[in-house]
Nucleic acid binder design. Structure first.
Lengths: 322, 322
DNA sequence: CTATTTTCATGCGTCGTGTGCATCAATCCG
DNA sequence: CGGATTGATGCACACGACGCATGAAAATAG
């Protein structure tokens, strides 16, 4: 019932090299051992595969029949094995990351660029979805890594903070607030604010936090997507309270960022994986890279690289479903 | 450098059955051993293939990747092995037999019929060639078995007599010789004989043997092929000296066979194989069957069965290149 | 909420099997 | 005819795989 792959490999090598000695050398075993391997295989099969005179070796008709198949088997096998070992050694393979759109469009491209530079053979697939869908994707195994807002305690996920993204005020450089280094939330009352509509998770989070401090934001304008809000800000319509990471440095020269304090409110971006699952080497490498990259970039977010800027301006439907 | 097929099989089974216990049972080993096999494979690959909680087993992403390939490998392997074992157990496989035309058309069909009945799955290929080509075919391995005239001592072939085919006189039932049970060669002088042309190996053999007894055959008519000679005999033209096996019993009702003696001269048909080579089980079975069949049929040859008769009358170019 | 059962991992002693060394038998070559 | 090469065999040994007993963790039952 037991398959003798050593015997088959031995047979193949002897047949290929036309002798036990050469084959034994190639396998780094003694001729004795090799001889017995073939004997064992033949005994097991009940067939003679090789006709051996004391001087030379020749395939029997059965052996001739078996040889090509045996060769393919051995090759397939060692090929697959080699590929797997390589996968482990070089952290190669494919990665699927589920990510909220904001991050996917603004922070992630830089990380992916670094990852691609380091692991040129690896492919990365990004699922840009909304928060719950990301969790589902990770839970189901569709994605190995998830990136999104810090969630309610989730026992079957293991999360790790990669970014604390403070809510700030974005305003035009001519806006009165632009001269201030920081503002308190209360002070916002005097400005016309552009608000994100209540369906946004960001907005919900913000309201919830502010509520604990007895503060309620009132928007004069309301839009659905942060990028729309930014556009309005750039046009001088008003100021907008948004996560800092919404705007990549440099993309809107006329827009200024003003810190909002008392209290400092941040949304926390985390990466998470399913508890108990082992990441593929490729995903593991991505995970590590993401952690290091974001941490070193600090809470202000990564600088917008050209790649990410391009992505941002070409966005078809920028939204904040996270 | 060593491939761990047991580990792969273990992995496949655990993944298929979703647990170590079930898999261990199926492999008839303890759960302990199975557990260690998978561990060893993983250590060897440097990868985790299975995420095992103490309660259940799940594939890692790498494992999911590897599983289909592993499955195919194991299946291919055990499939090939099984086929080979079957080949040995059931003497299955293909046979190539090189055979002189006379035998191929007259004696062999019966043997093949018996062989086909006994080994329904096996295919038989007959190379009907002349004497030297048969030897070459066996030498080169193109055919495993050769059937032909006994040859000059051939050190690299092993031969075995399967038929002694005496030269006899074939004559029409109205021919004066037909009433005799036997004739001496000398007595032939008084008859008009149909001779086979000198290029025939049979004729050469015959002349050579007769020469030692100071006898020379003189033909009034000369043809090239035995079957033509038979036709002439049937037409009452004359009598012909031919190997007994040339005519299958019953195919020419009006033709009689008369034994020729003083001396009895036979050609010897042998089957031979290359020295030192191991026959495939299929060929081995054919070899054994051929020996038993012919021996039991005796020197007179096998009765013509319908199959062989049909073959004979439909022959496009009956000759005696043997 | 504890007890039981199930499931996978681990420590340990044992046995099997594959291995190498030395040697033999047969063939090739000078 | 003798040395060299090639594959097979006898023998002793050691590594490794195995099973048993046990442990840890988690699902299930009462």
């Amino acid at each position: 019932m037991k398959i003798d792959i050593d015997g088959i490999q031995a047979f193949v090598l002897v047949a290929e090299l036309g002798g036990f000695h050469q084959a034994a050398e190639k396998l780094h075993i003694s001729q004795t051992a090799l001889s017995r391997r073939v004997q064992k295989l033949e005994r097991y099969l009940g067939l003679k595969l090789l006709d051996r005179t004391t001087r030379s070796v020749a395939l029997t008709s059965v052996g001739r029949d078996f040889f090509p198949r045996a060769l393919r088997l051995v090759d397939d096998l060692s090929g697959s094995i080699a590929r797997l070992q390589d996968m482990s050694r070089a952290s190669s393979g494919d990665v699927v990351v589920a990510c909220v759109p904001t991050m996917a469009y603004q922070q992630l491209p830089g990380v992916i660029r670094a990852y691609a530079a380091r692991y040129p053979a690896n492919r990365v697939r990004v699922l840009d979805r909304s928060g719950v869908q990301i969790v589902d994707a990770v839970r189901s195994g569709e994605a190995e890594l998830g990136i999104g807002l810090k969630l309610a305690r989730n026992p079957d996920l293991v999360e790790q903070t990669i970014l604390r993204d403070p809510f700030v005020l974005y305003c035009h450089k001519d806006h009165p607030a632009s001269r201030r280094a920081a503002l308190s939330w209360k002070a916002l009352a005097e400005f016309d604010l552009i608000a994100i509509s209540g369906t946004s998770v960001n907005r919900a989070l913000l309201d919830h936090r502010l509520q604990r401090h007895g503060i309620a934001l009132r928007g004069r304008f309301e839009v659905e997507h942060p990028s729309t809000a930014i556009s309005l800000v750039a046009a001088g319509v008003g100021a907008a309270v948004l996560p800092a990471a919404t705007l990549l440095r440099g993309s809107f020269p006329d827009v200024r960022r003003v810190t909002l304090e008392h209290p400092l409110i941040s949304r926390t971006i985390v990466q998470f994986v399913k508890r108990g699952v082992t990441l593929s080497p490729a995903a593991e490498a991505f995970h590590a890279l993401l952690r290091r990259t974001i941490v070193s970039a600090g809470a202000g977010g990564i600088d917008g690289r050209r790649a990410s800027r391009d992505l941002v301006v070409s966005r078809k439907r920028p939204d904040d479903r996270d």
